[in-house]
Amino acid sequence: MMNSANSNNHHQKHRLAWLRWAAPLAVFLLLLLLFWRGLSLDSSTLPSPLVGQPMPAFSLEMLHDASVLKTEQDFKGQVALINVWATWCFACHHEHPMLMDLAYLNRVPIYGLNYRDDREAALSWLEALGDPYQFTVFDPDATVSIDWGVYGAPETFVIDQKGIIHYRHVGVITINDWETVFLPLIEQLEQAA
């Protein structure tokens, strides 16, 4: 009895002996693959948990007129873009001509959400570079922007007619982004309605 148990034990040991070197090797190879893939990942773009949700409610002053309050209801009605921008934001300078082009195309309305900014500076920016927005709401202390999950600028949200958020774009919108992501999405949302 004792003997057979022992030899059984030995047998098992030999059968598993290859694991001693194979396991570390396998882990290492998996790690290499992981790093290889990791090199091309860009983890700075976070998915928004707000996608699929209605817009967060807010009430903010208009940038051009502090006496006018705008709410999320004012964004509703059509498929629209909501662009988060600021004058201190370097990339927003890069994005601005693209927004002007989009405004000229007039495919969808663009609303501005001015983020953590100075009203004077923002107004003179729009004056100098042109105003692509239907209107801009002013959020100097970022209270509303946080509700929208904003963590940088520029960011652009796509909403449908009922005010449901369908996409959040982090960073500058390029022509490629517009053609491959925004336009198909906008068409799909318009047809769905």
Binding site: S44, C89, F90, A91, C92, H94, Y151, G152, A153, P154, V170, G171, V172
Partner: peptide, 8 residues
């Protein structure tokens, strides 16, 4: 320079 975060 894709984005403008307050990247340090």
């Amino acid at each position: 320079m894709k984005k403008c975060f307050w990247v340090i």
